[in-house]
């Protein structure tokens, strides 16, 4: 049977439709579930084998991106989230979804506890931008996380104003590096970079995506779910052979296959 994926919607989430289509294409059954349903019946989330937090502007990013919805989940769905984690249910947070997971404390969980350890703050440029970036998958992530099987690099767009990943201190960064939780880095000519616009926001250590210690909960600022079809590439008209699907689809089929 196809694994069932919960795609969270509502209160300003806006990338749910394409994320659902992508999971379907990858072989899952994706259901878009409005946050109001989960507020009333949190246990409904336990029917799913994967929870996806799409991008968007939950609560308009007022106060800080992902903060208010993160809080809502924490206070209204805290027990359910704990239960999901204890069942090792994979999760993905993309863009605003990533911000939510970070503010909520599900990522990175370096200390094993669900408390906020990192943040995603305003881009160095001070503005929202939609541009394509190149990402390198870390060896550690490929080795331990089912999301990254056989993946070396990815191309997809960033679309955010608050995507600069920072930690409380450089010591914390060293811990994150040592724990092998850094999954994706922005690159220029294949190497991680601090240079704008290749690193579009000034993230520490060029970090674009991280996982929890288990490798099952994964969050990233870029949007792989809109880089699935060959004709979504920004320069596909220059290619001799336009691929039907891109490597970004593998990210999703990897986790679906893991669940099958």
């Amino acid at each position: 049977m196809n694994p069932k994926v919960l795609i969270l919607t509502g209160v300003g989430i806006n990338s749910n439709r394409e994320l659902a289509e992508t999971f379907e294409l990858a072989g899952a059954t994706a259901e878009q579930v409005h946050i109001s349903v989960l507020e009333d019946t949190p246990e409904k989330a336990l029917d799913y084998q994967l929870i996806a937090f799409p991008g968007g502007f939950s609560y308009g990013d007022h106060i800080a991106s992902g903060k208010i919805l993160g809080n809502l989940l924490k206070f209204k769905l805290g027990d359910t989230l704990k239960e999901l984690a204890s069942r090792s249910v994979p999760m993905i947070g993309i863009c605003n979804g990533f911000q939510i997971l970070v503010k909520l404390g599900l990522l990175p969980q370096m200390g094993g506890e669900v408390i906020q350890e990192a943040s995603l703050i305003q881009n160095n440029s001070g503005q929202y931008e939609d541009r394509w970036v190149n990402l390198k998958v870390s060896d550690e992530a490929r080795a331990k996380s089912p999301w990254f099987k056989d993946l070396e690099s990815l191309r997809c767009p960033v679309r955010h104003g608050e995507g600069k990943l920072v930690l409380g201190s450089k010591d914390d960064l060293a811990r994150l590096q040592a724990s092998g939780q850094i999954a994706l880095r922005y690159t220029k000519e294949g190497e991680p970079t601090d240079e704008y616009p290749y690193n579009p926001n000034g993230s520490w250590d060029a970090i674009a995506g991280i996982t929890d210690p288990s490798g099952l909960i994964f969050g990233l600022m870029p949007h792989p779910e809109v880089a699935i079809h060959g004709t979504q590439l920004p320069d596909w008209t220059r290619l001799e052979q336009v691929p039907t699907h891109t490597d970004c689809l593998k990210l999703f089929s990897n986790i679906v296959n893991y669940l099958k």
Partner: peptide, 13 residues
């Protein structure tokens, strides 16, 4: 560039 031109995943050109 400051406009999101790719949300909903439909862009071709």
């Amino acid at each position: 560039r400051q406009y999101d031109h790719e949300v909903q995943g439909m862009s071709v050109i």
